[in-house]
């Protein structure tokens, strides 16, 4: 199991354990973490699973593809460490991953 720490925009935290191989979005939704809408169900086409990845973890993720980059462009709240978390697949190396959900999803 992989541990993920979700913070919301007010700073309140929630720790979730999930199996390697699923996405951070799926881990959030199946554990009822608020602040993730995932309207498209995980096909990188709605930009409503936007998270800010904790700086220490940014370099450990696989690079985003052009489509994720374009979809993130729809969000007005995009930052350097923005990702769509349906595109982050959990692995043992990501045990302890920290992400923050934005106040609003697109």
């Amino acid at each position: 199991m992989v541990k993920i720490l979700f913070k919301d925009h007010t700073g309140s935290e929630r720790s979730v354990e999930a199996a390697a191989g699923i996405s951070v979005m799926q881990a959030a939704v199946s554990n009822g973490v608020p602040g993730i809408d995932a309207d498209c169900g995980g096909s990188c086409s709605c930009a409503t699973c936007h998270v800010y990845v904790d700086e220490a973890w940014v370099g450990k993720l696989t690079a985003m593809d052009a489509n994720e980059d374009a979809m993130l462009g729809l969000s007005s709240d995009r930052r350097e460490n923005s990702r769509l978390c349906c595109q982050i697949t959990l692995s043992e190396e990501l045990d302890g991953l920290m992400v923050t959900t934005p106040e609003f999803q697109f």
Binding site: G41, A47, A70, F106
Partner: peptide
């Protein structure tokens, strides 16, 4: 998960 807003870049 409805389609009324479309999906993708033109959502």
């Amino acid at each position: 998960q409805h389609l009324s807003f479309g999906f993708g870049l033109h959502r």
